[in-house]
Every structure is written in structure tokens, then in C-alpha cells.
Design a binder for these strands. Sequence first.
DNA 1: TCCCATCTCCACCTTTCGATGGAGATGGCC
DNA 2: GGCCATCTCCATCGAAAGGTGGAGATGGGA
Lengths: 216, 216
Amino acid sequence: MSKETIRVLVVEDHHVVRQGLVALLNVVDGLEVVGEAADGVEAITVFRKCQPDITLIDLRLPRMGGVDVIQRLRMETHGARFIVLTTYDGDEDIYRALQAGARAYLLKGMTTDELIATIRAVHAGKQHIPPAIAQRLAERMGTEELTPREFDVLEQIVHGKSNKEIATELEISEATVKTHINSLLGKLGVTDRTQAATAAIQRGIVPLESLRKPKQ
Amino acid sequence: MSKETIRVLVVEDHHVVRQGLVALLNVVDGLEVVGEAADGVEAITVFRKCQPDITLIDLRLPRMGGVDVIQRLRMETHGARFIVLTTYDGDEDIYRALQAGARAYLLKGMTTDELIATIRAVHAGKQHIPPAIAQRLAERMGTEELTPREFDVLEQIVHGKSNKEIATELEISEATVKTHINSLLGKLGVTDRTQAATAAIQRGIVPLESLRKPKQ
DNA sequence: TCCCATCTCCACCTTTCGATGGAGATGGCC
DNA sequence: GGCCATCTCCATCGAAAGGTGGAGATGGGA
């Protein structure tokens, strides 16, 4: 198994980066790019067709996020191995990607050698998380989970809503909004809504893109 | 001039992306990558040595930002032409890059053909701004400039400081802080500090990275 | 069944924010 | 000199936010 060629699927929406990856990997002995996909839905289709040993996947993808893709494909193909390759997407994404079953998490800033070494390692059944990532993951582990409702409120805060507006939006009283806020401030380890908003963005709890379009 | 090979310098800190770009460009007829740099300072050194026709440059770079690099090099080499190539960096960066003298602004999501066409166009003396970018640029043009002091205050807001803390930090009275806030809320077109914070992050007025490290 | 998390709401209180309408000082620009 | 932007500060006000200590309802899990 280790002497055979490792069949790789590359899932990445940025054309330049994807073509770059393919070009890089194809000149490496023992690696072969057997498929490419530019979004999550395409990733699933291509995966089923080419059954790669390793899937190199970005988290931010059009149509369907990387985490969902990993989750879906891991259910139907027991041996599937995923390496998340991303620029930097907040602690929350790292956490969810590993939860979903990714074996490694790499930043695009790493060297080609590191990338290849990681592909080989994961193919051999190992796991690979860079120290910097592991560090942040550990921090995130220490923090309490937000309840669904607290998350709803936090989302509204990030979108600049007042307590009254949040109450209207979620169809609850302002008192309840305050209760949730009080609770989530504690869990996030911050003291006011502005800090909560920036923390949520920075950790990737609420995606920055959601700010541009009012209606998601 | 148009029949000769276009000499390109690639400035990009992500190894994978950079090598991808180099691999892509080198197989194109009429293009030649004559240099690579992984950070701003290196970019300046390499530029001086190889004197490229076109410099493909990312904005987020270690040691020295892309905007500063462009500004510096444009002063010493009159014919230098720059194409900014980035994922997405808030309206503020687009604006400053073009101000600094970049001829084109491309997202990494574009196709290889677009990239090559843009390089040729810029080399021929043209300018190229994608419609989506131009759109946002126009919006940004309509907004008033923040004064230096207002920017200071906004920065503190993004970092989660209260008015009292900001007053202490900037060594002014809380009343003055309020005055600045009132003014910047109006200029940003928002109604409270939380909206100001998210707007600042989203537009790239205050970099998201500055949140992680309290002391810049 | 009992426990616990969650969601909901209330009252009360203090602090903080944001809005308004001032005003004096500085320094650059015409 | 006069104009204008900027920075600084003041008082006052109402609205919003945050803290505290409750409490009832629900529903799932041990």
C-alpha cells in the first residue's frame, strides 16, 4: 500500500491556488492528482467517482462548506482521509473540521515539503496538527459551549442589533435577551457586547461574510 | 515592446500559492517569472535586482505590507507596474492599493486566463479593475475620511475598550472620547459602537489580526 | 421519578452610551 | 487676517446596556 501511488483529490475554489496545488503535487513521485473540485457539491460528486486516498480540502467553499463535505463523505466511505488546507479560519472552524474527521489541518503558508510530508503521513494512517493549531484548539476546548439560543443572540449582536431589535427578531422579551447576553458574555469571557462581537468574528463563530449581506 | 517577454515578479507569502503562480505563469508564452519574494522587505530587494515589468503582489505580507512596498517602489522606479492579487481584504485595502499606484486588483478566485489577460493589459499600459471591486470602491468613495484621532478611538473600540478606558489610553477626557465617537459613528454610517467595530473589521479599517495580540 | 439544562420572563438598580449644543485652542491655507 | 478642520473639554439628558437574584415551564436523560 505504501509503495503504490497516493491518489489525491484537490478541493479548492480559488482557481489559481487549485491549479498551483495540482501542478505542485503532480511532479511529486508517488502522488497523483486524480480529481479537482471548485465547490462543495462538486467535491462530493468527484469524490464518488474517483475514490481518492487523500482529499485535500479548503473549508470555505461555495455551495457547501468543507466541514459538511467531510462529514457527508466520511459517512459513506469509511477509509476516506481528509487534510484541511486553509489560510486561517478562526478556532471554530479548526475545531469543527477535526470533529468532522479531518486528519490534518494545514495553513497555506507552509512549505511544499511540509505539505507532501503531511500527505504521506496521513496516508500512512497518522494524524498531523501543527503546534500553533493545536495550541488554539486547546484554548477553544477550555471554553464553554454556547446554547443554540445564545448563539442566535450572539449572531444578532454581531449584526449590530440592539436588545430591543433582537427581542423582536427572535420573538422573545427584552428581558430574555438580556439573560442570554449575560450568559454568553460569561462563556466567551468578555465584558460587553462589542467584545462579544469581535470575539465571535475572530474565532469564526459568526462568519465575517454574513456581515455584507443582511439577509443570509 | 509588446513582442518581448514580459518579466514578472511574484510577491506572495503563502508558499503553495506562490509556487502555484510561478508554475502557472512560466508555462505561458511571453511571460517569464524573474523573481519571487515572500515578504515586503524581500520584495524591495528582489525588485531592485531584477527590475521586472510587472509585479504581482499580495497585500498582506510579513514585515512590510503590500501597499507600502508599492508606494516605495513607485517612487524610485517610474515605470513600475503593479497588480494586486489578493483573496479579499476589505474596501480600505483596495482603496489604498490603488491610491499607492496599483494598476489592477484581482481576486485569487479568478481564472488563469483572466490573470494572464490582466498581466498583458497592464503591461500594455492599461488599467484593470473588476466590476465587483469597482463597485465597492465607489461606495467607499462616498464615505467621509476619519480623522487620525477618530481612527485611534475606533481602533480602541474594536479592541473592546470602554469610553473610560479609551480616555485613559489616549490621555484625553471621556468627554472628548464621546465627541470623537459621535463623529465617527456618523462618518461610518452606523448607530453604535458595536456596529462601528464590525464595520471597521469588515472594511479592513482595523485589521482582524490586531485582535489576537493585545499589544501591537 | 427526579435532576438538569435550557428557555422564558420579571423587577430593580447602576453604569455606560449616545445625542445635543455648546466653547476655546491650535495650525494650516487662502 | 480670516477661514476651516481638528482636537480638546464641558454639562445635561434620556436611552440602552449590564448585573443580580429570582421564578416557572419544558423536555431529555439517568
